[in-house]
Design a protein around this nucleic acid. Structure first.
Lengths: 334, 334
DNA sequence: CTGTTAGCGCGTTCAC
DNA sequence: GTGAACGCGCTAACAG
């Protein structure tokens, strides 16, 4: 009953030729006669032959599989990125193994170990929010497995990175608010050890200077991206003597959390207090009252860019120096 | 610079014993002396030895990897299910390979072929909406790779299935509306060839009979789950001579699409026309005006159940007959 | 142009 | 208790 996956040996027996001839024929090696090659291909098709990847790996040391490690698949930003990754990987004949760190450092290390023991060809990572040292990534690179970071990339670490030019995006977002006559703008940011948080902060500070905004340290909050922490920091903002007139949030989710806090306090979001966020996720399409604008970060494109970079590194015969790809953002007004 | 992954051969050389002794020691074979075993384990640890899965596969014919094939990772239902799958798989030492069919039949077949050629140990599937014949699944089963369907399971096909008791859930949902005094209830369903659509229809028809509802065939619509089709079918419902007072939708997304249509027509959702849906996704937490109630389908639990079933089948020495696991739903009132 | 052979890393049978 | 040798499926160096 149980069908068996054909091997080159069986093809060889079937054709009464040697295995190496079959192997070469299947690789279209010109040293094999055209007629033989066609015969081999024909029989291979008929027997539904597919090379055994384990055997190939043993010879070539290539699994043709990449690992993707990211915080939460449930976040649309990441599931969109995965789609980009999948598209390129499939196109180039690579399989994709997925793990979620759930923003947990221990899980992240475990997943990398699992990738290492599976002998994957390379890894694409968006760092867990808990993580602030990167030895586990260096470790896997030491074993010759290239790592490409995307979106949540570590700062102060030489590495392959794909990210958005968030600094510019932040300035644009603030300009948008300034043009509406708003001067008191708070920043509800992510963890301070994310490069992407740092960039938002930079853009914010630049904008403060360039547009002459009134700000104070209490207008700048770092969150760990959790709902509870976001709620707390939002409440802190709202209970200031001079609460902000607008809040720029690290991503759409924080905006939604913060807007719930506002509603609970009797404030109407985007009327009494304006919201602008990052990511521009499809989820906002379903909302009656989404943030006024969102800085699109092109999750899908970041996925494709990261994968192209990784596969280039994997397939390059020579060592490639670390690269950093920076995409432009775009302010989407809802 | 590039570290090398240790092999049993190197451990053997290091200890000046033979590879087979090392192999046996690592399997804690009692035939190996306790002292030797400890030595071997010690050196293995020190060298960060991890068995090469490709080599193991060649001997054991087990990749310790399962494939997951589902429509869209972006749908929260599926990303939650993946989390359940990942949890069980990781716990039992299996890797997870993920592919999205994007509801496309061709992509689904391609993904299965890729799983087959990767020699995965088993596959968990939620069927693409386009798919209405199941030969490609039977094919992969013929090669000895077990398949477990979850949520979107094929009806009229003997197979392993994990699903929810949607018929009951539908009746509960309608009872909820009936108790609010509503009698004209429409059903905005999924594709008619989904077993899960069929169950909703059954529950609906039962409820119509049991509660004496006024209905007509024009109150029952099948969609292909796309936004455009949903909008069209909703417009058809609203333009009936006697439009429904409530709409029960296949899932939360359809409800959101349909509610947008209502708003465009000047109707206030959940006031002028009530909504109840299936799935109870976290996305609804962010909405000002979510469906009144939602039939929770326990995505995470379906993932864990499907994985447990699959791994049982994989690890069972004897052939196990097809199984069907049915979970109970729960009506969540928002 | 084609066949023979060794070996990738590991488990296992058979010797000792 | 331990070691030698073979083979899983495949590629590639070597031989003709």
């Amino acid at each position: 009953m149980q069908k068996h996956q054909a091997t080159i040996k069986e093809i060889a027996q079937n054709l009464k030729i040697s295995v190496s001839t079959v192997s070469r024929a299947l690789q279209n090696n010109p040293r094999i006669g055209l007629r033989t090659r066609e015969k081999v291909w024909e029989v291979a098709k008929k027997m539904h032959y597919v090379p055994n990847p384990a055997a190939v790996f043993l010879k070539k040391n290539k699994t043709h599989t990449i690992g993707v490690l990211l915080p939460y698949l449930q976040e649309e930003f990441f599931s969109m990125a995965i789609t980009g990754i999948e598209d390129i990987a499939m196109e180039k004949g690579y399989n994709v193994m997925v793990c979620q760190s759930r923003d947990n450092h221990i899980r992240e290390k475990k997943a990398l170990n699992s990738f290492l023991s599976s002998r994957l060809d390379g890894v694409i990572v968006s760092v867990a929010s808990e993580t602030n040292n990167y030895e586990h990534f260096k470790e896997i690179e030491n074993y010759g497995i290239p790592v490409v970071f995307f979106d949540r990339v570590p700062r102060n670490l030489a590495a392959n990175k794909v990210r958005c030019n968030v600094t510019n995006g932040t300035k644009e977002a603030i300009q948008f608010l300034v043009e509406k006559g708003i001067k008191q703008i708070a920043l509800l940011n992510g963890p301070s050890y994310f490069e992407v948080s740092d960039e938002r902060l930079n853009g914010y500070l630049h904008a403060v200077r360039d547009f002459g905004l009134s700000t104070s340290p209490s207008y700048i909050k770092s969150t760990d991206l959790s709902k509870s922490d976001t709620i707390q920091k939002t409440e802190e903002l709202l209970s200031l003597k001079e609460p902000p007139k607008a809040i720029l949030t690290f991503n759409d989710y924080l905006a939604l959390y913060a807007m719930q806090v506002c509603k609970a306090k009797g404030l109407i979001p985007n009327k009494d207090i304006l919201f602008v966020s990052f990511a521009n996720l499809p989820i906002t399409n379903y909302l009656d009252n989404p943030p006024l604008a969102s800085v699109e970060q092109f999750a899908y494109e970041m996925g494709t860019e990261a994968t192209n970079l990784l596969l280039n590194i994997i397939e390059s015969p020579i060592e490639i120096p670390y690269q950093e790809i920076v995409l432009d953002t775009k302010l989407i007004i809802h």
